[in-house]
Computed example of a mutant assay.
Amino acid sequence: MALENLNNHLNFSGGPGALPEQVLKVTQAAIMNVPEVGLSVLGISHRSDWFRDVVDETENNLRELLGVPRDYHVLFLQGGSSLQFSMIPMNLLHGSKKTAEYIVSGYWSAKAVPEASIEGEVRVVWDGRDSGYNRLPAAEKLVLSSEAAYLHYVSNETVEGVQFSYLPGMSDVPLICDMASDFLSQPIAVDRYALVYAHAQKNLGPAGLTS
């Protein structure tokens, strides 16, 4: 289909963000032939200098947009954010002999708890189920431990429509946030977090990547 005949409407549902027409045009051309390489983008090696430059540029853009300090790593991983429900406790809870704390504020944060429980002890410090997940806890209502492995929360629950307006947690406990639905929608204090993760599908384009 020619792009001139494409109705590129904005998408306000829980799916991929709409890409600008210019990006779609460049992508369309690159599928046939990347000019400086002479190959389709679908046939270029992931070990090539060209692909390395694409990854480096993407990382630098993220660092600039979010103010990511140089002592923080930027990782591009396969899978969606839900994969991190398992990978985070595998790396930060398993074998630690500590308890991970979770705020359950809606559908997505509730899904993270069972996966973490496989790897170690989990304590839900607040659960909004009884109220239908229509509100968030006040900061002073959270009873937290300074000995926790980490505190995990979801910044914006898309199903219920509740979004944190403050950073929960204690300064001496690693803070982990699933920002899948509001990543790059506003500035964040990256240095207040131990780990932030999000998938490209919500705001950045098509699915298939977590950063």
Rank of each mutant, 00 (worst) to 15 (best):
P174L: 10
N5E: 14
V190H: 02
F51N: 09
E121G: 08
N91R: 12
M87T: 10
V34Q: 01
D191S: 13
S13M: 07
K111L: 15
L195A: 11
R70S: 08
V143W: 02
A149L: 12
Q28A: 09
P35F: 11
Q22A: 14
V23I: 07
Q163K: 10
G205V: 15
V113G: 04
A207I: 13
P35D: 09
V113H: 01
D130Y: 09
S86A: 14
Q84W: 08
F183K: 01
P69S: 01
Q28K: 05
H46W: 11
R192P: 11
A207Y: 11
E140V: 13
V159M: 05
S40A: 02
I103C: 02
V113S: 02
T158N: 04
L167T: 11
P20C: 02
A149N: 09
T27Y: 15
D172P: 04
L151H: 03
V196Q: 01
R135L: 15
A100S: 10
G79S: 08
T158D: 00
A180G: 11
L75H: 05
A29S: 09
S82Y: 13
L10E: 01
L42Y: 10
A116T: 06
V26Q: 03
L24K: 00
W108K: 02
E64N: 02
Y193Q: 02
V113D: 01
D127K: 03
D182G: 07
L19Y: 01
Y153I: 12
N60W: 06
S171D: 15
C177M: 12
G79K: 04
G161S: 06
Y150P: 07
R70L: 08
L136P: 05
C177N: 11
P35N: 04
Y107G: 00
S81N: 08
M1T: 09
L167F: 09
R129N: 09
D127A: 07
L83S: 08
D191N: 12
H9R: 01
D178G: 08
Y197E: 07
G17A: 15
K141N: 15
V37K: 01
V173C: 03
H94N: 13
L6G: 00
S117C: 12
L42G: 00
Y153D: 06
Y166S: 00
L175H: 03
H152M: 12
V190K: 01
N11M: 03
S171C: 10
L93E: 13
L62Q: 01
R135Q: 15
G208F: 12
V74M: 04
S185Q: 11
Q78F: 10
G120L: 13
A30F: 15
